[in-house]
């Protein structure tokens, strides 16, 4: 038996909206300690990794480990039934054929229930090695989203360069070439800060269209954390306060 209740259901709506353009069918791993999900996009270029801790739920019960095969596209349709200030409860029995989703609005006395049919997915799992990232950039999530959108109109690829003094996003294409350079900025307004933790410089290239899809999650957190290592995929991380973390992994592009 699994049951989890989230008072702020909007968070779950935002999480589903943040991943529905990247992954289609996913196995949701339910355990007594929380909910996790790991899935790649069809081209195996991007991977979504979600970890939600039981502590973040108003009520959480999972007697055993379970795997719930879910079509994210269908889950996104069901989540549309939720109002932004609904409380959301997820329920599934052992060997369940469906996931029950309940939206409650205690103020308006409105309750919505939906039984989402579960699917069987034999998805491969990826072993993601623990990596010591030699560059970690913490940047305002709205600002990073804006930079990616603007650069995408100039080139489909961005080169990210880090060093101790700045992080640089550079593009070149038939329009021309240029870069956005952000230095360490510890402005008193916390959410405007750019924090660089660079022990080794990194220079890699990425497809911006994936970054734009990842940035859908910027509504979940005021900060985006970019973790880079010269030999590893980029990690774009959004911490979900009091609940967990949503991470996106993106493989680099290499110059021929």
């Amino acid at each position: 038996m699994f049951e989890a209740k989230l008072t702020e259901g909007l968070i779950l709506k935002k999480i589903v909206e943040s991943i529905k353009d990247i992954v289609t069918d996913v196995n949701i791993d339910i355990s007594p300690s929380g909910i996790s999900l790991q899935a790649m996009d069809s081209s195996h270029v991007a991977l979504v990794s979600l970890n939600l801790s039981m502590d973040g739920f108003e009520h959480y019960r999972a007697d055993t480990n379970m795997v719930l095969g879910v079509s994210i596209a269908n889950l996104a349709k069901v989540m549309k039934l939720a109002d932004n200030n609904d409380q959301i409860t997820l329920q599934a029995d052992q060997e369940a054929t469906h996931l029950k989703i309940i939206f409650e609005n205690p103020k308006t006395e409105r309750t919505t229930e939906f039984n989402l049919n579960l699917i069987t997915i034999d998805s491969e799992h990826l072993a993601i090695p623990e990596t010591e990232y030699s560059s970690v950039v913490t940047i305002n999530s709205g600002e990073f989203s804006k930079i990616c959108k603007e650069l995408f109109s100039l080139s489909e690829t961005v080169q990210i360069t880090t060093n101790t003094d700045y992080v640089q996003f550079s593009v070149e294409g038939e329009v021309g070439s240029g870069q956005v350079r952000l230095g360490h900025n510890d402005s008193e307004k916390k959410e405007d800060q750019t924090i660089l933790e660079v022990s080794e410089s990194v220079q890699q290239q990425f497809a911006i269209r994936y970054l734009n899809m990842f940035n859908k999650a910027s509504t979940l957190s005021s900060f985006t954390r970019l973790c880079l290592h010269q030999e590893q995929p980029l990690v774009v991380e959004f911490k979900i306060d009091n609940l967990g973390v949503l991470k996106y992994f993106l493989a680099p592009k290499i110059s021929d």
């Binding site: 799992h125 072993a127 995929p233 592009k253």
Partner: peptide
Amino acid sequence: GRTQVRLDSFFRVY
């Protein structure tokens, strides 16, 4: 030109 690498080059599938 630039070639897009896949995650399978970095992460072991099991």
